[in-house]
Design a protein around this nucleic acid. Structure first.
Lengths: 203, 203
DNA sequence: ACGACGGTCACTCGAAAGAGTTACGGAGTT
DNA sequence: AACTCCGTAACTCTTTCGAGTGACCGTCGT
C-alpha cells in the first residue's frame, strides 16, 4: 500500500498537489495535512512512504518539522516544496534530512517524475548543494524557555524586561540567551532573531 | 471589462485561484503574477479591478508590495491571501491599505463571495481589526542604505562590520540604524530584524 | 548511581549599542 | 528660494549586551 502525505497550508495548493500526486503510477493513497503539527501528530498512527511538505508554513515551520519528524523516525522520506528564492529554507531542510526539494514552479510532469523516483528508490537523495556551513551544521532544538526568550527578543524587549515578563532574574534570561545563541550559531540577538525566523521557530 | 489579477508564488495555488475566480459572475479576465515585483511592473500598463495576493512571497513581500502599489495608485483594490496564524502579516497588510483578506482555508464559495463583494462595491473594506498600534502606524519606507544595514544586522554583523562591508564609518551605520529603528518603530536591532521579517523587507 | 541536560541565579569585565546632538552637501519638491 | 529627505561623519554619555565562569537542583535516561 503505497501512500503519500501532502502537507501545505493552502487548501488550493494542497488539493492541486493531491490530485497531481494521485496520478503517479503506484500511488494508492494520498493523505493531506495543513501544517507541521498535524504531520507530527498523525505520524505515529499513520506512516506514509513519502511526504511532500511546504517549507513555509504557519506555526511549526517546514524545517523544524523535518527535524522533529526525522528524530522520531529517521527513515521518513521527505521532499520539500519551495518557491523561487527561498534557497535558505531548502538548504536548511535538506541539511536537516529532507531527501530533496521541488520548486513549486515545477511542472506537473516534474513533480510526478520526482515522486516516482523517490518512491522507487528508498535511498534516493538529492545531491547535497553547497551549504553555508555557519548556519547549517547545528540542529537547533530550542527548549520552551529558550523560545520564550527568543520571542521576547523579537518583540524588542531587553533581557531585564523578558525576565520581568517570565518572572525570572535578568541573569537567568542571559543564561538562556547564551545557550540559544550557541544552539543557533548566532553572534548576537539580532542574528538569533533572524535565524529564528529562517528556521520557522518564531513569527 | 472586469479583470482580476491573481498573485501567488506557487503555480498550483495560482492556477487553482485563477480557476475559482474565473467562475465569479462578471469577471471577464483573470491574469496572474508570481511575485510582488511582477505585479508592480505590470501595474503601469495593465490595471485590474481587483488584486488577490499572497501575503508571503519570496522577494518582495506581500505587505511591502501593497504599500508600493497603493503609493503608485491609491485606488487599487487588494485582497490579501493568507494562511492560518499569519495574523501579523494580514494586520500589517490591511493597515497598509489592503481592502481585506481571505484565509486560504476559505472554501471556493467564500472566495467567490468575497471577490463578488469586492468587485460590486468599490468602497468595500474589511472592518479593521484590533491592531497593535506600536508596530502598525507607520508605513516603513526604508531607503536602500537602511535596508542594507538591516540586512547586515540580520546576519549578525556589528555596526563596525557593516561599516567595513559597505565602506562607511561605524558612525554612519549608527545613523542609518537609528533612522530605520525610528521608521520601523523598533526598540533595538533584534526588534528591527523581526519587524523586517514581518514586513517582508528582509529574508 | 552516574552523567547529561535544563532551569535557576550570581559575579565580573570589556565591548557594543543606543540616545542625543550637530553638521554639511546634494537631490528632489514645493 | 526654502524645505525636506538622504547619505555621510563625529562627538559624548548611559545602558545593555555578551563572554567567561561558577554553582545548585531536579529530571531523565543509561
Amino acid at each position: 500500500m503505497t501512500s503519500v502525505l501532502v502537507c501545505d497550508d493552502s487548501p488550493l495548493a494542497r488539493e492541486a498537489l493531491r490530485r497531481a500526486v494521485a496520478t503517479v503510477p503506484g500511488v494508492e493513497r494520498v493523505t493531506t495535512a495543513t501544517n507541521g503539527e498535524e504531520v507530527l501528530r498523525r505520524w505515529g498512527a499513520d506512516r506514509s512512504d513519502l511526504i511532500l511538505m511546504d517549507v513555509r508554513m504557519p506555526g511549526l515551520g517546514g524545517v523544524e518539522t523535518v527535524r522533529r519528524l526525522l528524530s522520531a523516525d529517521p527513515g521518513a522520506r521527505i521532499i520539500m516544496l519551495t518557491v523561487a528564492e527561498d534557497l535558505d529554507g531548502v538548504a536548511l531542510a535538506v541539511a536537516a534530512g529532507a531527501r530533496g526539494y521541488l520548486h513549486k514552479d515545477a511542472s506537473r510532469a516534474e513533480l510526478r517524475a520526482t515522486v516516482t523516483q523517490a518512491l522507487a528508490d528508498p535511498t534516493w537523495r538529492l545531491a547535497p548543494r553547497r551549504l553555508r556551513s555557519a548556519e547549517m551544521g547545528a540542529a537547533p532544538t530550542l527548549t520552551a524557555r529558550e523560545i520564550q526568550v527568543l520571542e521576547g527578543m523579537s518583540h524588542g524587549r531587553s533581557n531585564a524586561e523578558i525576565g520581568r515578563e517570565l518572572f525570572l532574574s535578568e541573569d537567568t534570561v542571559k543564561t538562556h540567551a547564551r545557550r540559544l545563541f550557541k544552539k543557533l550559531g548566532a553572534s548576537d540577538r539580532a542574528h538569533a532573531v533572524a535565524l529564528g525566523f529562517r528556521w520557522g521557530l518564531v513569527r
